[in-house]
Write a protein that binds this DNA or RNA. Structure first.
Lengths: 249, 249
DNA sequence: CGGGGGTTTGAGTCCGTTCAAAATACGTGG
DNA sequence: CCACGTATTTTGAACGGACTCAAACCCCCG
């Protein structure tokens, strides 16, 4: 629901680079850290390291030892998982204000997936020891992460159900509706336009299918006048038509 | 690896019913509660309610408000998720020593899936308020749940990857190997025998496919002398042959 | 002995895959 | 700014795994 304004991550300017402080972080209220009191926030501010990466950079690799977690200040990140045979899927996208790597931090020794920037991205890295320290002195932080991960798990299990019971066409419609919330704007004629953050290959990886199938499915949706693709711009002339897609099947 | 002894959940006898105490609970060391000190354990013991259900009983329904969580003392429980169209899958099996409903407790207001007993089952119910109380006074408990849920999430994401990249045949082989750890024994000839805790329909629901496909796949595996089914008894003449199944494809 | 659920088998269909080639977009250096 | 090489996307044709629908079968239980 809601939302037709375009929300784009602005590239960090040098002046912004200087003032990366947790205290005036625009994203803080969206993150787990919002439960921290001033003292703890100052600890966090001292221990975090800010990094800016260009598009296509791998933040961590599946199998790497977990050295801490990352908080996205701006940009979009893809979380990928690969199995022993080399099959790989895109598990999810992570956006500004989200923390990545925290499931791996709590769950085990090594990262269970890889993280890769899709746009220029600024991240704050919080190392193991600092995080452990913060957690032991601020129990609410752990509960905050707990609540978040529980929702992620629900999302993941929904994805399992979707994969087994819905067609690629329906799943693509679902994806477009999800992306709309974050990447949609309106054109001159007042129609919804989604600026996709990912290419066709990644759409395929996200839906657990092949690029060829995505191309064909896009073509089919266009034939039925549900949406109209032009590169990474998706025109949605009528939202209810798109919503109908997820009703059936 | 390891383990060829049959582990079966004994039906609770009346005498056992009387002495359900968290202090001498056989399962406690396998659960999250093992981090609790004596005082907290006594609180838990006072507030928990013990229940025994026969096979096929629904413990909670998807959509029900979360009134607490359940700790399985003995028995096997199936966690099912259904979507708006009525499609349903079996997300996972839960066994003695595992706590169910805790993800829902932390994640939201209502259960995201249903839980149903597959065998006669004894559970301890811990209500919302007691759990909240325990959590706020024992931060380690939250971290324990956090670690557990993080591993569950990893498992769920593995399942997504498996569903999209592996054939039903390979997934069935994976399932058999998983069930072996808990439900396998050896016959007179020293061969591995798995006593399946679920029927074909549920195997299908667990793999995200149809019963017909399971029947055909079982037939195919038997034709290739990988395993031999007889009702819910699965004979594995040679483990390495079964292991080969998951190598390829 | 006769239900009745679960399981198996069969035949036909369809969705998505695979492999291959063409078309398009993209970036880089001349 | 254009030309080139490369990567991505699209299209085509053929194949195949899993699904659907339907019927037969089986086994457990009353």
């Amino acid at each position: 629901m809601a939302m037709t304004r375009i929300r784009r991550d602005p590239p960090p300017t040098p002046s912004q680079m200087e003032q990366h402080s947790c205290f005036n972080c625009q994203m803080r209220n969206r993150t787990e850290w919002c439960v921290l009191p001033q003292v703890a926030l100052s600890q966090l501010d001292d221990s975090k390291r800010v990094n800016t990466f260009s598009s296509g950079h791998v933040i961590y690799h599946q199998g790497d030892p977990v050295r801490g977690i990352y908080c996205i200040e701006s940009g979009t990140v893809a979380i990928r998982k690969t199995d022993v045979h080399g099959n790989s899927i895109l598990l999810r996208l992570a956006h500004a204000g989200q923390t990545i790597g925290y499931r791996d931090f709590f769950g085990g020794e090594v990262f269970a997936a890889s993280a890769e920037t899709l746009t220029p991205t600024t991240l704050c890295h919080v190392d193991r020891d600092s995080l452990r320290n913060l957690l032991s002195h601020n129990p609410e932080l752990g509960l905050k992460f707990l609540s978040h991960i529980a929702k992620d798990l629900d999302t993941a299990e929904d994805a399992i159900l979707q994969h087994t019971s819905l067609s690629v066409r329906t799943r693509l419609a679902h994806l477009l509706l999800t992306l709309k919330d974050r990447y949609a704007g309106v054109n001159a004629r007042g129609e919804i336009v989604i600026s996709l953050p990912i290419n066709r290959q990644d759409i395929a990886a996200l839906l657990g299918t092949r690029p060829e199938t995505i191309a064909r499915t896009i073509h089919a949706l266009e034939s039925d006048s549900v949406v109209s693709f032009s590169g990474r711009q998706v025109l949605v002339p009528d939202l209810s038509t798109l919503l109908n897609e997820i009703e059936s099947n």
